[in-house]
Write a protein that binds this DNA or RNA. Structure first.
Lengths: 256, 256
DNA sequence: TATTGGATGTCGCAC
DNA sequence: GTGCGACGTCCAATA
C-alpha cells in the first residue's frame, strides 16, 4: 500500500520524506513538538507543544492540538508547502498570495511522520440543507399557507436574490426567506432588505397601505415577507412583528 | 517517546491500539480506506475512499480527504469515541447528545495508525482581531474623527451590546460598529439596529431632526452611527448613505 | 441551557 | 478577482 511512515526520524530523514511526499502529492501527517507562527490576514504565535500537522496536496495545512474541531493554526488550499532544516529544527512553511499569508511550523522533535496517496470517494451526499427546505416547499406550497403559489426561486432584486418569490391566495406578492435551522434577528434583517427592494421595484406601499388613487388595488399589490425556519428566537420574533412579517415553522426534512 | 504507531495493522490490532489510545487520552490519526456516514443536525453519506481520521481526547473527530481546509465529515468536541470490529471492518463511531449526532467511519483497510500523548502550549497570541481594532480606537479616538470621545464599550441596548458608544465634538451620541475586515450590507443592518435602539432609549429624533419644542437641543441629542472597517462594499455604502451613517476606513493594526 | 455575534471563518456561485 | 449568502459552520461570552 502507498503509505510511508517513519518513527522518530532525524530532521534530515523527515525532510527527505516530506519532500518525497510533496512530490508524490501525498496526504501527510506529522506528530511532533513544534512552535507555530502565522502572518497574513492576522498574525499569531504559538509556543512549543506537541501537535499534529496535516499537509494536503492541494496546499491546505492544518495544525491541530488535542482540543477543538478547529485547527489552532492553518493555511487555506492553494498554498505551497516547503520544508527545510534550519537552526537544528525541521521547518515546514506554507505560503500563498492574495492575500499574502505564511504559516511556519518549526519542529524541535518529530515523533511520527506518515504519508499516504489518497484516491477516490469525494461523492458526499448531504440531506437537510436549505436546498432541501426549498424543494420541500416547491413540492408542497400549502406548507407555507393555503393558496400560496411559488413563482420563482433566487429571484433577483436590488438587494440580491430572494430565496422564493410567489403570490398568496389574494395575489399579493410574497417574499420567502428560508433558513434550515433556528434563526436570530439577522435573518429578519435579510428578509426586510428583500421586501423593501421589491416594494421599491413594484412601487407599492408597504404593509397593505393604499396608494393615492392611481392604484385601486393597493392591498393586492403590497409585498408580504415570510420567514420559513424550524423556529425563531424571541428577538427575531419581535423584529418580525415590527415589520409585519410572518413566520412559518418548517423543517428542511419531514420529522421522523 | 509517547508515540505508538502501527503500520498495516489487522482490524483486531488497530482496535486494541485505538482502545488503548482512548484510555490514555491520546491524539490519534488513522490513515485508511473507509466509508463515512453521519446523522444528526443533517445526514450524509460518503462512499469508500482513502482518508485521514483524527480523533481527539476531547471528543472531536475529523475526517479529512486530500482536499480542503474543512473536514469532509466531523464530530464536535464533547463526543464520545468508540471502536469495534463489525462485519470484517473496523468501525469507529463518535456520538454526542443535544443535539443527538453520530458519526460512523467504517474502515475496510487501515494503513497506518498513530497515537500521541499531547502536552503543553495552548497559549496562542493573535493580533489583528476586532478587539485590536477597539483597543486602537480607544487609545487614539481621533482616528475616528477629531473630537470623538469613547464613553463605553459593549454598551447594552435593547438590540444587544454595541461595540463602542461615545460622543462627538458636538456632544452628539455616536454608536460605532467595528469590523476587522471589509464588510457587506449585513454590518450596516447591525449598526442600524443599535442606533435605532439607542434613539428609542434616548427618545430622540433620528438624523438631526428636532423635536416639537420640548427638546431645544434636538440636534445635539440625535444619535449618529459610524461603521469602522478597513473598507466596505458598494452595496454597504449605499445602505450607509440611506441611513445617514458614516464610514471610517481603519485597519485593526497600523499598516506596516 | 439558549442567545448572540465574531472569525485568519471556509466554501461555492454569480458577476 | 469581488460580492454575497449558506454552513451539520465553530466558538466564546453572556444571560
Amino acid at each position: 500500500m502507498t503509505v510511508t511512515s517513519v518513527h522518530d526520524p532525524s530532521h534530515r530523514e523527515a525532510l527527505w520524506e516530506l519532500e518525497d511526499a510533496f512530490e508524490r502529492g501525498d496526504l501527510v501527517s506529522v506528530f511532533g513538538r513544534c512552535t507555530v507562527s502565522y502572518e497574513g490576514r492576522a498574525a499569531s504565535d504559538l509556543g512549543a507543544g506537541d501537535r499534529l500537522l496535516v499537509l494536503k496536496p492541494d496546499g491546505a495545512a492544518l495544525v491541530h492540538t488535542d482540543e477543538g474541531r478547529q485547527p489552532v493554526n492553518w493555511q487555506p488550499p492553494g498554498s505551497e508547502h516547503r520544508a527545510a532544516v534550519r537552526e537544528g529544527r525541521l521547518r515546514v512553511r506554507s505560503t500563498r498570495t492574495s492575500p499574502d499569508e505564511t504559516l511556519t511550523v518549526r519542529f524541535s522533535d518529530v515523533h511520527q511522520l506518515s504519508a499516504m496517496a489518497v484516491t477516490g470517494g469525494r461523492d458526499l451526499t448531504l440531506h437537510g440543507s436549505e436546498e432541501d427546505l426549498r424543494t420541500r416547499i416547491l413540492e408542497r406550497p400549502e406548507l407555507v399557507e393555503p393558496g400560496f403559489e411559488p413563482r420563482e426561486t433566487e429571484r433577483p432584486s436590488s438587494a440580491g436574490p430572494m430565496d422564493i418569490f410567489g403570490v398568496d391566495a389574494d395575489g399579493t406578492p410574497v417574499v420567502i426567506e428560508l433558513k434550515r435551522r433556528r434563526v436570530g434577528p439577522d435573518a429578519v434583517g435579510q428578509l426586510a432588505r428583500y421586501v423593501r427592494a421589491l416594494r421599491e421595484e413594484l412601487g407599492v406601499e408597504g404593509e397593505g397601505k393604499g396608494g393615492e388613487g392611481e392604484e385601486t388595488e393597493a392591498a393586492a399589490t403590497a409585498v408580504r415577507g415570510v420567514l420559513v425556519a424550524p423556529s425563531i428566537t424571541d428577538r427575531a420574533a419581535e423584529r418580525l412583528a415590527e415589520r409585519g412579517f410572518g413566520h412559518v415553522a418548517l423543517d428542511p426534512t419531514p420529522e421522523t
